[in-house]
Amino acid sequence: MTTPVLALKQITKQFGQGHTAVQALKQADFEIYPGQFVAIIGPSGSGKSTFLTIAAGLQTPTSGQVLLNGTELDSQSEKSRLAFRFNEIGFILQSSNLIPFLTVTEQLKLVDKLAHRSFQKERATTLLSQLALTEVATSYPNELSGGERQRVAIVRALYNDPSVILADEPTASLDTPRSIDVVKRLADEAHQHQKAIVMVTHDQRLIGDCDVVYQIEDGIMTRQK
């Protein structure tokens, strides 16, 4: 394997100053290669979401470097970071990240509009049926269950064919069989389509398919597997 798709070097993130300062991440090192499915586990408040947002360029670290395909994210303009986020990163948020006034299918159509291409009907149909969403394709987010919304978010992230998918507890509102399904789906995506997928979870049972597992505790990141 050559360069990692995503590498974080000596990342520290501090919130606030003085007495009230919180060190959410302490000199964290991380790397992921195409075709890898990586899990990050850790208790609540340990810094998992902070890590993902820094990896996606949504927050800048207090110190350290984020490298995407070998180039430093910090050195890029806001505009190219935005384009990069849109093209290369699929983000699945901890809470639902759907647009309330678009139906499930329209969420996908929007992605195509923004990418200046026509609607990829077949791809949409396939992805929706793989995540058992065919029935709700024309529903609005407020008409869906929490699990359905979470799956739509996953479809949306996969739909744009990004090279990296960052998923913050993608199974948080799913029952166990569904959770296992979704994780299988992400693992397939990584292994069969050479995607780099990072999944944050606190459910130990879901990390069986993962190639690499990192543990975060109090901002300190250690590789487990």
């Binding site: 505009k79 849109f86 983000f91």
Partner: peptide
């Protein structure tokens, strides 16, 4: 919050 979500997905201020 919605605009925040859009920005997370790479949909910028101009859009």
């Amino acid at each position: 919050p919605l605009f925040g979500v859009l920005k997370v997905q790479g949909i910028g201020t101009n859009h």
